[in-house]
């Protein structure tokens, strides 16, 4: 058994490989890890690269694909990419859920028959409180998008990112996501991570690499320890959780990941519920 196979089997390494398809976003969230926004450099991974690496990931024994950004649905051909990726491995896409107008819903309708899930961010049961963190009209667009996506047969999860004090509102948020058709098992709650714009804004919890579950993450800037790793602060990429600049063949960053994992203290695991 290879070191990678062992790590995947004993879950010391997550089975999902993440891809940052892009870094730009239509929103400018106050706690964004990557300082994403409409005017930042796109730093896109091209479709062929993502597909090739996904196939390599499957061959190496990984079991799932994750897509994040930036807002992935700003990438022009994302629906087609997702359909192709779903033919390789199950896909989870992290999205802000604000772009699902009729035209986009029509384009992603075929994904209802594919193994593609969307994880949509929704932080607060009150529109005003939610939109303060995430931007104008965010709440309305999300609560409209979720039922529309479910109606297409596309699985939806809700991700809630909490700052201290917000937990009191969680029961009302759970009532809301259930009313939208998303069960408790598909509701992810996690703290704001003190990186990127959150660190600049003095928000969130500080995490060491030992606090972040290792999941190989590929970006245009290289391979990283976790999807929470390729963060940006003051316009500069954080390199503390960088594994390698080389991402192809995928074995290269895998080897770097295994090397780091092998030096990890015994019993190290996430303590901050950062998922």
């Amino acid at each position: 058994m290879t070191a990678l196979a062992t790590a995947l089997a004993d879950e010391s390494l997550g089975g999902r490989v993440w891809f940052y398809t892009n870094y730009h976003c239509n929103l400018t969230c106050s706690y964004c890890l990557t300082e994403s926004g409409p005017k930042v450099a796109r730093r896109e991974l091209d479709r062929a690269t993502v597909l090739d690496l996904a196939r390599e990931a499957k061959d190496l024994g990984f079991s799932q694909i994750g897509i994040t950004g930036g807002e992935p649905f700003l990438v022009t051909d994302l629906p087609e990419l997702l359909a192709e990726l779903a033919g390789v491995l199950p896909v989870l896409v992290l999205t802000n859920g604000t772009l699902f107008q009729r035209a986009l819903l029509d384009r992603i309708a075929p994904l209802g028959d594919a193994d593609v899930s969307l994880q949509i961010s929704l932080d607060h049961p009150d529109p005003v409180a939610n939109d303060v963190m995430r931007g104008p009209e965010n709440f309305r667009k999300v609560v409209e998008a979720v039922p529309a996506l479910l109606a297409l047969g596309i699985a939806v999860r809700i991700a809630t990112t909490l700052e201290d004090g917000d937990a009191d509102d969680l029961p009302r948020l759970c009532i809301l996501h259930r009313s939208l058709g998303v069960g408790d098992e598909d509701h992810v709650v996690r703290p704001i991570l003190r990186r990127g714009r959150a660190e600049t804004g003095d928000m969130g919890v500080r995490a060491r690499y030992l606090d972040l579950p290792p999941e190989l993450t590929i970006t245009a800037d290289g391979a990283f320890w976790s999807p929470f790793a390729p963060t940006v602060r003051g316009g500069s990429l954080d390199t503390d959780l960088l594994l390698s600049r080389t991402v192809r063949p995928l074995q290269r960053p895998v080897d770097a990941m295994i090397t780091v994992l092998s030096g990890r203290p015994e019993g190290a695991d996430s303590t901050l519920n950062i998922r």
């Binding site: 320890w225 390199t239 503390d240 960088l242 600049r245 080389t246 290269r252 770097a256 090397t259 780091v260």
Partner: peptide, 27 residues
């Protein structure tokens, strides 16, 4: 800011600018 693979090189203090620049490409 040292990447995971090269942190040991920084454990004893500033490793000098050759290592500090090479660390941009940890492999």
């Amino acid at each position: 800011s040292a990447p995971l693979l090269v942190r040991d090189h920084f454990a004893g203090g500033d490793p000098g600018p050759i290592v500090a620049s090479l660390a941009q490409v940890p492999e």
